[in-house]
Simulated assay, not measured.
Amino acid sequence: MSNDLPNDLDVEYELTRFVRRVRARSLRQIPEIHPSLDYGQFLFLIAICDAPDGIRGSELAEGLGVHKSTASRAIAALEKLGLVARVPDPDDGRAQLLVAEPEARAKLEAYRKRSHQRFSAIISGWTDDDISTFARSLARLNDAAEQIP
């Protein structure tokens, strides 16, 4: 990228490059979780796995910033693939929570472990201070991004 652009555009450009690379790698590895799983469904599965006590479909849609109908289609696909199940909400007998099936959770954890190992290899030449500064900067960026609607 040209140095005559403002620094904030260089940061955005580099973040975009990194996100594309991560997404491309994810697309290659997602079939290890399930051969029919697509990237959008994968993002829903992550969110469901990250809610260990389960999550309502409406909360899932809100958390991912998608329309309820989009969430409904993704959830139905994940159920059909046998990756998630519905269980009664202990706080509201009329409602249901989405939970990841144990095998799906285990496969996602294995995926995350491989991703962590790959990222560790990428930054293996960095100093501890470099890593700490980068982590704090990313956290600061994410915190700021969450404040903007």
Rank of each mutant, 00 (worst) to 15 (best):
M1F: 07
E14N: 11
A139F: 10
A110Y: 00
I148K: 06
D38F: 12
L60G: 01
Q147H: 11
Y39F: 09
T70W: 05
M1G: 02
A95K: 10
Q29N: 13
P52Q: 02
L37G: 02
R73M: 14
A71L: 01
L15Y: 12
P6M: 03
R28M: 02
R21W: 11
N142M: 06
P31Q: 00
L64M: 08
A85Y: 14
I148R: 06
D92A: 07
Q117M: 13
V66P: 10
Y39E: 04
Q147G: 09
L78K: 11
F134E: 01
G57A: 06
P102V: 08
K80M: 07
A139R: 11
E14D: 13
A47S: 09
E59N: 07
K113Q: 15
C49T: 09
Y39N: 03
H34V: 01
R17C: 07
I75C: 14
R20P: 04
I33F: 02
S115W: 11
R25T: 11
L27E: 15
V22A: 07
E62L: 03
Q96K: 11
R105L: 15
N7W: 09
Q117T: 10
D8Q: 02
D8V: 01
G82D: 04
R136A: 11
L37W: 01
A74N: 12
E146L: 07
D91T: 10
D130E: 13
L64T: 01
R28P: 01
A144G: 09
H67E: 03
S26I: 05
K80D: 13
L64N: 08
A24V: 06
P149G: 06
K80C: 07
S120K: 15
L60C: 04
L97G: 12
F119M: 14
R112Q: 13
L9I: 00
A85L: 12
R118I: 07
P88Q: 04
I122E: 04
V87L: 06
S26E: 15
I75S: 10
P102Q: 10
R105K: 14
H34Y: 03
S69A: 05
G65H: 00
L43W: 00
G40L: 15
I55H: 14
I46T: 04
R21S: 10
K68V: 11
G63F: 14
Q29L: 09
K80R: 14
I148A: 09
D10P: 02
E101V: 15
S124T: 11
G65M: 02
G93R: 12
F44R: 00
D8E: 05
Y13P: 03
A139L: 12
G65A: 01
E32T: 15
D8H: 03
A85E: 13
Y39Q: 05
A24G: 09
R17E: 10
L60R: 05
V22I: 14
A139Q: 08
F119C: 13
E79A: 10
T127K: 06
N3S: 12
R118G: 05
L43N: 05
D92N: 09
V87R: 15
A104T: 10
G93Y: 07
A135S: 09
S58A: 15
A76G: 14
L27R: 15
D10N: 05
A74I: 00
